[in-house]
Design a protein around this nucleic acid. Structure first.
Lengths: 248, 248
DNA sequence: CGTCTGATTGAGGCTACTCAAACGCGGTGG
DNA sequence: CCACCGCGTTTGAGTAGCCTCAATCAGACG
């Protein structure tokens, strides 16, 4: 373990902090986070990070790569709840509610910062700024899910796809995963389909339609937004004002 | 205002605490909450409690009555995100993210405890237990939305209705709003329809079908679960283990 | 008794679903 | 080098669940 510690990303040099998307830390907060972080975990594409109902003692921050949160009905129908990108906190429900009702799976090879969930209490006790950050992230996530619920509940297939594409692009862009209106898509049409609540077949047809109308392209795992305005109109989407997010 | 203060519910005598659903408070926490609470608000059925984009300086706890959270697309299609019952925190996103992306509207005449949102920081600074409670509530709400998203994304009309009925019943029961497998339904079919992501017409047909098959009844604004097991099977629903919730 | 809101029912149509087959492509092994 | 996977994508054909439009009904209220 000491060995792996040497290869560990130092919080003071956290690559996420270089990007100008996180609020500034106080020194003592950073010192604490460094102690709070008990290690780093590599999970390869397709593997489970946190399993529903499975109580691990850890929570994670996604440092590198993509993941997704999902639940299923008993008969196997799967809902993708949201995608996770660097900076996202995974397993907060486990720490706070002591229960996970969804699974988190890696889409790409990922790197995770590992924290002991039983130390979350000491965060609240001694580092109110960090505690606030955690709450910020929880609220933010809820806001995103609210958006998806609106989408799945009331948009048609084309609108849903347009919305999701813009959503993914914009989130990828914030963490430096998009350049030039395009980003690497580490998911399959089946993932999109389960996120949108549309069958794979119909998802495919919808994708083809929007592509043929030059709204976007998807070649070699790379998605490019070609007609942002058109997609925004389709989806009635408004880009969030970028707010500096906290990081833990 | 001094006048209304006299009619205010005392936190020490908070009726919600009488019901054995909230975690115990420490005395000093209770003292603080008493100070934190700046007043009480009555909102009548149908009125807006918090308006999307509208930055009020307050957040609320629902003390009495029903409310619902909702957003809409530009063309008016409305998604009911969730229903709120006593003990639920309203406006946390406002306090934490400084932005509300949904509206909260009263379904019945409601009583709300009013808190200054700019004091939320002092909660985090000085009352970690309460801060944790707020985060607990945020996480819990997210968990509920996740459940709805699964429902709207992957259940058919009958399954969605079954799920929502059980969900509402169980939540109502926890706060003492249900007796004998039945509860007062302060909403219309249109509300359900917007929550389920199904048109009012089809919602009506689905309701009639499930009623005619004796799954439940809905007479004089009162919903009664007649065949709980049947509904659970339909919806693949599992009742949550009751956990003591925090209260703020 | 007229009006309003919400619930209900009918008829017809379209979106999205199901079933099924074929295609493209990277990987593997003979 | 090529045949043979296996996974993900694509396309076709027929169907059904849910939608739209529209009218009627029931109850509350002034």
């Amino acid at each position: 373990m000491t060995d792996s510690m040497n290869f560990q990303t130092k919080c003071h040099a956290c690559p996420l902090r270089q990007k100008n998307v996180f609020r500034p830390f106080e020194d003592k907060e950073l010192d604490f986070v460094t102690k709070f972080k008990t290690g780093e975990l590599q999970v390869e594409a397709g593997s489970t990070i946190i399993l529903e109902d499975n109580k691990t003692p850890h929570i994670y921050t996604l440092l590198k790569g993509w993941a997704f949160r999902h639940t299923s009905l008993a008969d196997g129908r799967r809902q993708v709840l949201n995608f996770a990108l660097p900076g996202d906190l995974l397993g907060l429900q486990l720490a706070v509610l002591n229960e996970m009702q969804h699974t988190v799976t890696a889409l790409t090879d990922t790197t995770l910062c590992v924290f002991q969930k039983d130390k979350v209490w000491s965060v609240f006790k001694d580092y109110p700024g960090l505690a606030f950050s955690m709450t910020w992230m929880a609220s933010r996530e809820e806001q995103l899910i609210d958006g998806h619920l609106l989408s799945v509940g009331h948009r048609n297939a084309q609108e849903r796809l347009a919305y999701l594409l813009l959503h993914l692009h914009d989130r990828a862009e914030i963490v430096g995963y998009a350049q030039n209106q395009s980003f690497d898509a580490p998911f399959t049409q089946a993932h999109l389909s389960d996120a949108l609540g549309i069958t794979p077949v119909h998802t495919n047809r919808t994708i083809r339609t929007l592509q043929s109308e030059n709204y976007f392209s998807w070649k070699q795992n790379r998605i490019r937004i070609l007609d942002r305005e058109g997609l925004e109109d389709l989806a009635a989407y408004e880009r969030d004002v970028k707010t500096l997010r906290p990081l833990i």
